[in-house]
Amino acid sequence: NQASVVANTLIPINTALTLVMMRSEVVTPVGIPAEDIPRLVSMTVNRAVPLGTTLMPDMVKGYA
């Protein structure tokens, strides 16, 4: 099973992502692959992402 990116904290809308905000976890449904974490750093989220939420491609500006 592939690990996905999961919010390690509440990420407010329009926040630039940092490494400490994200962790990898095997979850269903599958979200952004964990190997993309380095690429996500400094990208911003377009909605509030609660703790434990899987990051989906449409949640990160410029990812999809």
Rank of each mutant, 00 (worst) to 15 (best):
N1L: 14
N1R: 03
N1H: 10
Q2C: 11
A3G: 07
S4I: 02
S4C: 04
V6Y: 02
A7T: 10
A7L: 03
N8W: 04
N8M: 11
T9M: 14
T9W: 11
L10C: 15
L10H: 14
L10S: 12
I11C: 02
I11S: 00
I11A: 01
P12N: 15
I13L: 12
N14Q: 11
T15S: 06
T15H: 11
A16F: 14
A16G: 09
A16M: 12
L17A: 00
L17S: 00
L17T: 00
T18C: 04
L19K: 06
L19N: 06
M21C: 04
M21R: 04
R23M: 05
S24N: 07
S24V: 13
S24A: 13
S24G: 08
V26S: 13
V27H: 03
V27D: 02
V27E: 02
P29L: 06
P29Q: 05
P29I: 06
V30T: 09
V30Q: 14
G31P: 01
G31D: 00
E35N: 13
E35A: 08
I37F: 03
R39V: 07
S42I: 03
M43H: 08
M43C: 09
M43F: 13
M43R: 07
T44A: 08
T44V: 12
V45L: 13
V45R: 00
N46R: 09
R47V: 06
A48R: 12
V49C: 06
P50R: 08
P50S: 09
L51A: 10
G52W: 04
T53K: 09
T53A: 12
T54E: 01
T54L: 05
T54W: 02
M56L: 13
M56W: 06
P57S: 13
P57C: 06
D58C: 15
D58E: 13
M59F: 08
M59Q: 05
M59G: 03
V60N: 02
V60W: 02
K61Y: 13
K61M: 14
K61C: 15
K61T: 15
G62A: 11
G62Y: 10
Y63V: 04
A64Q: 14
A64T: 14
A64R: 10
A64I: 12
